[in-house]
Nucleic acid binder design. Structure first.
Length: 531
RNA sequence: GCGCUCGUAGCUCAGCUGGAUAGAGCACUGGUUUGCGGUACCAGCGGUCACAUGUUCGAAUCAUGUCGGGCGCACCA
């Protein structure tokens, strides 16, 4: 809709035209301050230019009016156009707001180490990534969701150690001295028990078998992680294992050319030649690769697979790492501009105004699964999708347990349920409703319909700006318009019943489509929960 | 110290590719249909958009600086 207006104006004026929402809805559907920018070159007052521009529009199928107000141009779309667009959307709900972008994108996110269940910080990145993924799919991108499994390196040994410690204490009843770093939490219990069944009791005490134990256990941990994700409606297309990549290391080193050098028996990447502060070690004296080495082979593999664009979602504490990986990508002979790194910031939780307590049981972190259990997957997704991902966030769980308009997810669901209910109450058949014409609706209904038809623009904007919070913002305001309209305007039993119901169907379609892009299923009726 | 980032209502946050009177929810105060789900709606209260300078017809938005918060600056992952 906006694209069409924009294209039409670009052709008419021969320049890009900024379109925005009018200050006051009664002004029209779209507005542009174009007269201000033309004022300077034409040496005329903006008001006069706007008036001349406004009068240069004839009556067209597209605009019913074009007015100038204080230098702004305000456009009103014709009823013909809106009616046809709405009718098309209702007939083709699966096509509504879709596009065919086709670009091949690789989206890597979560990629938490396979050493324990996901915590609340992972959840934010997970929701952000999955929402981008859903938006991209809807826009027709050929996008792949990928999880990189760090199953090599120290953290794997640490997992083995942690299972042994847990088993020695709880199964062998030894008194165990805990080192400074190890993993803890209830999830170790079944791993320790299964390990005993599979390997025998001696696996718990034999330090030389830590790695063997961990390499077996990591698959179990990955199952836990996948379960956490699935409970929030998040699924991946591909999993890439770090351990499977090192066979390519020699070849990748050669490919890096001058980007790599040896010094004091260590291998460095000359990342300071690019935008990094200093060169980094990639292979230690004893031959063990560093964390960066894994990412170099991984990114080489990504680029060899041939995508047009790469998006990584990382925790914000890794931001200093971006320059190194980009340097490596360039040494490998690829355009680092194709690699886009998005950051997901920390989350602090409150409950009833107090900091949320981390439980010993969980290993002194806040588990994603605990929060899902407490407020539900829908609310969790909604919260994380409604805030800019790259700024720190603090929120109170208790707000999302309420069953009223202060809980945005509830508010939107209720709007959708109201639409469903009223349509089922009407005596009119679906054919009668669908054959109504959406014209002469009056100001309020007209604006409601326009709002509902804005979804395609919102989706496109939310994805291309990577600002997914634009979608929940939109859904909240559409729900508010619906509730207000419902309150102000009686529908059943009036002359306009058919066309008003049709209008509500359009709103319902937008709400439902928008929610599904957030991984949330729209409800057809609400049930009151008792505390 | 260097780098990244944030600072908007009492609280949690939108708005930031410059545009008309800076928004929402919570909290607080008051109100609402002889009717479709009051799980809703409306109104009031509340702001030096951290501060300063600059660019511009126009700055919460861009630039520079200052102050304040967070994060990072490993041969850890």
């Amino acid at each position: 809709m906006k694209q069409r207006v924009s294209a039409l104006l670009r052709e008419k004026f021969g320049r890009e035209v900024v379109l925005e929402k009018p200050r006051d809805r009664s002004f029209g559907h779209f507005a542009t301050p174009i007269a201000f920018s033309m004022a300077k070159e034409l040496r005329e007052s903006p008001m006069k230019i706007a008036e001349e521009l406004a009068s240069s529009f004839n009556e067209s199928d597209f605009f019913s009016s074009v007015d100038s107000v204080k230098g702004y141009l305000n456009f009103r779309l014709s009823e013909n156009f809106l009616n046809e667009y709405a009718a098309w959307a209702l007939k083709n709900p699966d096509q509504f707001a879709k596009q065919e972008k086709n670009e091949k994108i690789l989206l890597e996110f979560v990629s938490a180490n396979p050493t324990g269940p996901l915590h609340i910080g992972h959840a934010r990145g997970a929701v952000y990534g999955d929402t981008l993924y859903r938006l991209a799919k809807h826009l027709g991108y050929d996008i792949t969701a990928e999880y990189y499994v760090n199953d090599a390196g120290n953290q794997i040994d640490l997992l083995g150690l942690s299972i042994q410690l847990y088993g020695r204490e709880s199964i062998l009843k030894e008194s165990v001295e805990y080192p400074q770093s190890y993993y803890r939490g209830d999830y170790l219990a079944p791993l320790a028990q299964d390990a005993v069944v599979k390997f025998g009791i001696e696996i718990l005490s034999d330090e030389s078998r830590q790695k063997e134990l961990a390499l077996w256990a990591k698959d179990g941990v990955m199952e836990i992680i996948k379960k956490d994700l699935a409970a929030t409606n998040i699924f991946f297309d591909t999993f890439v294992y770090e351990s499977s990549l090192y066979k390519d290391w020699d070849r990748v080193m050669v490919k890096m050319g001058d980007g790599i050098y040896k010094k004091e028996d260590k291998v460095f990447i000359a990342s300071s030649q690019k935008s990094d502060d200093s060169d980094r070690v990639v292979v230690r004296e004893d031959g063990r690769p560093t964390y960066l080495a894994g990412d170099i082979v991984y990114h080489n593999q990504k680029f060899e697979r041939g995508y047009e664009h790469y998006i990584n979602i990382w925790g914000a504490d890794h931001h200093g790492y971006i320059a190194r990986v980009k340097a490596a990508v360039e040494f490998l002979g690829y355009e680092s501009a194709k690699l886009e790194v998005l950051l997901s910031q920390m989350v602090s939780l409150l409950k009833d105004g107090e900091p949320y307590k981390m439980s010993k049981r969980a290993g002194n972190v806040i588990l994603m699964s605990d929060i899902v259990e407490e407020i539900g997957a829908d609310a969790l997704r909604f919260i994380f999708a409604s805030k800019k991902s790259d700024t720190a966030l603090e929120f109170d769980l208790s707000e999302f347990k309420k069953q009223d308009s202060s809980n945005p997810i509830f508010y939107i669901q209720y709007a959708h349920a109201r639409i469903k209910t009223i349509i089922s109450k009407s005596d009119l058949s679906e054919d009668e409703i669908m054959s109504a014409t959406l014209k002469n609706l009056g100001e309020n209904a007209d604006m409601l319909m326009f709002d509902a038809l804005l979804l395609p623009e919102i989706i496109e904007d939310a994805f291309s700006s990577r600002q997914v919070q634009k979608l929940p913002e939109y859904l909240k305001s559409l729900a508010a318009s619906l509730h207000k309209f419902y309150y102000d305007c009686r529908i059943i039993g009036t002359e306009d019943e058919a066309k008003l119901l049709k209008l509500l169907m359009v709103v319902g379609l937008s709400l439902r489509t928008g929610l599904s892009l957030m991984g949330i299923t729209a409800k057809d009726y609400m049930t009151k929960e008792e505390d």
